[in-house]
């Protein structure tokens, strides 16, 4: 009896020694991870990891595009069941028309103010209508990574570069962080790292729109106005403020004000904005590029023509 137990224990010992992960390798890998973190964190935008990111992106981008293309017919099956064939088309067209009209109404105040202010902005009006490179979302970063980023299937070959504005037919989606040949990574405006210069359409007041990191429908964005004397009204539309050097183009609708908070402790007004874009169902997006950009696909020009 004791003998068998002895043998079994010995056997366990042997197995245990074989299974026990080597401590030295573990420590080496931990140190390697910490080195990566340090390199990337202190390097910032031009860290040593950027070339690696680009190389991995070149490899993974096409695979993600293909997977998304394969998966797409299956994910649209529920919509076929709800509304067959022609009905589904009709609904899509109506939705597109609806959001186009909503955009028009939403930016009406902003447009009128811009014309009234007459400060040379009208001269740029023809530039405001920008060419769009159409693209589809092929990969979405998991929320476990605590950042809101997506990959789109258009890259440097399509004429896309870092810091370009990404929109869909509802409003502002985000900006391009980095590109590979065939894909681009987009930072959504809901990401906690995202800050967009915003302007309240009715009062022309400027502020900053911060993401809250939530993709939920009731997630919302935070708007902090620069001038703390101004209280944004509910249902005011917020559009991008835009600058010549900054990443976001001017006058893209972001969302509407749903709640306003003001506290004595905070120096500025804080308003919650409900974005026009449904971030949990992103699909077709457009990247704003300068007119005349050469692209590997048809570009939607400012007047709506395909080129």
């Amino acid at each position: 009896m004791a003998d068998t137990r002895e043998r079994r224990w010995r056997g366990l010992d042997r197995l245990d020694a074989r299974n026990r992960p080597p401590r030295s390798l573990f420590v080496a890998l931990l140190l390697a991870s910490v080195t990566l973190i340090t390199l990337d964190y202190h390097g910032g935008p031009d860290s040593a990891m950027e070339p690696a990111r680009r190389a991995v992106g070149e490899a993974f981008g096409p695979v993600e595009s293909v997977t998304a293309t394969v998966v797409r017919p299956f994910t649209s099956v529920p919509s076929w069941l709800r509304s067959q064939g022609a009905l589904s088309d009709e609904i899509r067209d109506l939705q597109a028309e609806n959001s186009a009209l909503r955009n028009e109404v939403a930016t009406a105040g902003f447009d009128r103010n811009r014309l009234e202010s007459y400060d040379g902005l009208t001269q740029a009006a023809q530039d405001l209508g920008q060419a769009l490179v159409p693209a589809r979302v092929v990969a979405v970063g998991p929320s476990q990574s605590f950042s809101n980023t997506v990959t789109i299937d258009a890259g440097s070959q399509a004429g896309i570069g870092p810091d370009m504005t990404v929109v869909n037919n509802d409003g502002l989606v985000g900006r391009v962080l980095r590109v590979t040949r065939s894909t681009a990574t987009v930072l959504l405006v809901t990401d906690t790292e995202s800050i967009v210069g915003g302007r309240v359409g009715s009062s022309m007041e400027i502020g900053f729109v911060h993401g809250r990191g939530s993709l939920a429908d009731d997630g919302g964005l935070d708007l902090r106005l620069v001038d703390d004397a101004v209280v944004p009204a509910e249902h005011d539309t917020v559009v991008t403020w835009g600058s010549t050097s900054g990443p976001y183009e001017r006058g893209v609708p972001i969302g509407e004000v749903t709640e306003v908070y003001s506290s004595l402790l905070e120096t500025s007004q804080r308003a919650v904005i409900k974005p026009f874009v449904n971030f949990s169902a992103l699909d077709v997006v457009g990247v704003m590029v300068p007119t005349g950009t050469t692209s590997d696909r048809a570009v939607v020009e400012a007047d709506g023509a395909l080129r």
């Binding site: 990566l36 990891m49 992106g57």
Partner: peptide, 11 residues
């Protein structure tokens, strides 16, 4: 590193 990751690499 694979897109669309944008957090500090190594985590």
């Amino acid at each position: 590193l694979a897109p669309p990751a944008d957090h500090v690499a190594g985590r």
